[in-house]
Structures are given as structure tokens and as C-alpha cells.
């Protein structure tokens, strides 16, 4: 045990000993390295960042007011079709009410991003809290949670969301911010149970581990154990789930708006735009196809990012 042998780097010693050596790094840096090597995930991340920037700067970037109607220019075609209905002011054309499609697409990103992140944040705060308590203490909370999940699992998410939204649409909550708040609530009510159940499962398996026993042995309180030991170790699958929950919330909004029970027109969202244009879809397809493309790109990006995060954080997780 000489100081000299301590002085050489781990790497050199490993080389001397001829054993395989990987540099020791924290789990998170390691995960980031793995994520960075995943080209699809990085492309997804870039798109997500761009979408966020567009959403944040929508009022500055969008060339026109997304709800302003320029009736003479209605149904003008996008620049690649030009022809007699082309209006050079509207790059991607205008819809049947003469609203600039480009501006509407940009403003829609704003709603989508908000819809994607806000309910996810709410859902995870509630779900993690309840799941931790249920998993850690068991008892009534745990029983209630399990029964509740049984019921919620018999209800397809979307069906549940639709019923909540339909019932409360005509209330003041339903009308607030064009229905945005109601969608937040509906998504949160439906999804927190799944997160709670996931957290509960993690906590159940973690709390038997030696390091939790050790923490308990040195007198750590339940709050400390939950915060410092259980949560950090349960975080990886939760982050992955969150990465998938963002696009599924966006999808829910798009479906609701497409069906006519989501965000109220004239507030533009991609779902609303598709709904608006769907009646005349066979004659003027672009007002419908363009938002469809936007949704697809954003959904794909989130999925790639989610897949990448899963592979990077928790390779054992399936699907």
C-alpha cells in the first residue's frame, strides 16, 4: 500500500493490472453521454428546443395575427402551388376564413408546448407524492390507490378525458383560457394515477434495499429517506415516463380539438386547424396537411427523445 501506487491514475493502474477499465463517472453524466451518441434522440431534442423557442417567441415571429381574417385572401394556396389562388403575403397560404396559416401554425406550437408540459408537471407532482406515501407507508392510502387504478385502468384514458371535458365545458372553468385549463385538469385527473402506481412500485422494491435499511439504522426519518434515498433512485423510470407523457398530452389536446371539444376556436391549435379545414379537405388539403405534419414532427421528436432517454437512463426498461 505505497503512496507511489496511489499516485498513479486509476487508468494506469488498470493498464498495469491489465483489467478493463472504464472511467468512473456519475450516473447522470454517463446517461448524458449515451444520450448524446444517439442521433435520433439528439435530432428529437433539437426539434423540441426549436418548438419551445417558437412557442415562446410566437408574438414576435408570427408575421400576422393568427385570428385576423383577411377574407379576400381566403383559401390562398401555399407558395409551392402558386397559381391563381396564390397570395405572396401568406407564405403557407390562408385558410377558408383568410387567416395566415404560418402564423396559426406558430401560435399553435405555443398551445401544444404548454399542454405538453404543464399537465405533465402537475401529474408528476401529485403522482410522485401519492405513490411515495402509498409505497412507503402502505395501509389505507395504498389500498385506495390500488382500487382507484383498477377503475381508471378500465377506462381508456381518452374516454375519461372526453367525459370530463364534455361535462365541464360549459362551466366557467371550461371557458377559462379557451378551455386550456379544463384540458389541464382533465389530463391531470386521468394520468396521475399511473404515475403514482409507477412510483409506488419503485418505492416498494427500493425500500427493501440495504442502503435504505442503512439509512434507517442511522436514524434517518421517513421524510429524509424518501427525499434523499427513494426519490433519486426511482427517478430514472419516472423521467422516461415523463418524456412520453408530454407528447401523449399534446396528442390528447389535438384529438379533443379535432373532435371539436378541445380548445375553443378561434384560438389556433393544430387540432383546431385540422378540425376547421377538414370539411373542405378534399379541395383544399394544405390547411389540414400542414398542421398534421407539424403534429407528426413534434410527436416523432418527443418519441425519439423519450426512447433515447430510456436507453440512456435505464437500459433494462422495455418499450
Amino acid at each position: 500500500m505505497t503512496t507511489a501506487s496511489r499516485a498513479v491514475s486509476t487508468q494506469e493502474r488498470a493498464a498495469v493490472l491489465n483489467v478493463i477499465h472504464r472511467q468512473q463517472r456519475s450516473l447522470w453524466i454517463d446517461a448524458w453521454e449515451r444520450l448524446r451518441r444517439n442521433r435520433f434522440a439528439m435530432a428529437g431534442l433539437v426539434v423540441v428546443i426549436v418548438a419551445c423557442v417558437l412557442a415562446a417567441l410566437a408574438p414576435l415571429i408570427a408575421p400576422y395575427d393568427p385570428v385576423a381574417q383577411d377574407t379576400p385572401a381566403n383559401n390562398s394556396s401555399p407558395f409551392w402551388e402558386q397559381g391563381q389562388y396564390w397570395d405572396p403575403r401568406y407564405v403557407l397560404g390562408a385558410d377558408q376564413l383568410g387567416r395566415d396559416i404560418l402564423s396559426r401554425l406558430i401560435w399553435s406550437a405555443r398551445i401544444s408546448i404548454v399542454i405538453g408540459f404543464v399537465p405533465t408537471a402537475i401529474v408528476f407532482s401529485i403522482g410522485i407524492l401519492v405513490g411515495m406515501v402509498a409505497g412507503f407507508y402502505g395501509g389505507i392510502v395504498d389500498n385506495l390507490l390500488m382500487r382507484l387504478t383498477d377503475v381508471v385502468y378500465a377506462f381508456p384514458d381518452l374516454l375519461f378525458v372526453i367525459i370530463i371535458v364534455t361535462s365541464l365545458r360549459a362551466t366557467p372553468i371550461g371557458e377559462f383560457l379557451g378551455g386550456l385549463i379544463l384540458i389541464f385538469i382533465a389530463l391531470a385527473v386521468v394520468s396521475w394515477v399511473g404515475v403514482a402506481r409507477l412510483t409506488r412500485g419503485q418505492v416498494l422494491s427500493l425500500k427493501e434495499k440495504e442502503f435504505v435499511e442503512a439509512a434507517r439504522a442511522i436514524g434517518a426519518g421517513p421524510g429524509h429517506i424518501m427525499r434523499r434515498h427513494l426519490l433519486p433512485n426511482a427517478l430514472a423510470p419516472l423521467i422516461v415516463t415523463a418524456a412520453f407523457s408530454v407528447p401523449s398530452a399534446m396528442l390528447a389536446e389535438a384529438v379533443l380539438s379535432f373532435l371539436g371539444i378541445g380548445i375553443r376556436p378561434p384560438t389556433p391549435t393544430w387540432g383546431v386547424m385540422i378540425n376547421d379545414g377538414f370539411v373542405v379537405f378534399s379541395t383544399t388539403p394544405w390547411p389540414v396537411l400542414l398542421p398534421s405534419i407539424c403534429i407528426s414532427i413534434v410527436m416523432l421528436s418527443f418519441t425519439f427523445l423519450g426512447d433515447g432517454l430510456r436507453d440512456a437512463l435505464d437500459p433494462r426498461m422495455k418499450l
Binding site: M1, T10, L17, V19, I20, R22
Partner: peptide, 15 residues
């Protein structure tokens, strides 16, 4: 002995 003792545990795990 000294060389092995100083190796971080993850090297052994990699092995």
C-alpha cells in the same frame, strides 16, 4: 494486493 485494493469497484464489476 495494493494494485487491486486501489481499483475502483466498478472495474471489478465490468470484469
Amino acid at each position: 494486493k495494493a494494485e487491486v485494493a486501489d481499483l475502483p469497484p466498478d472495474v471489478k464489476r465490468v470484469e
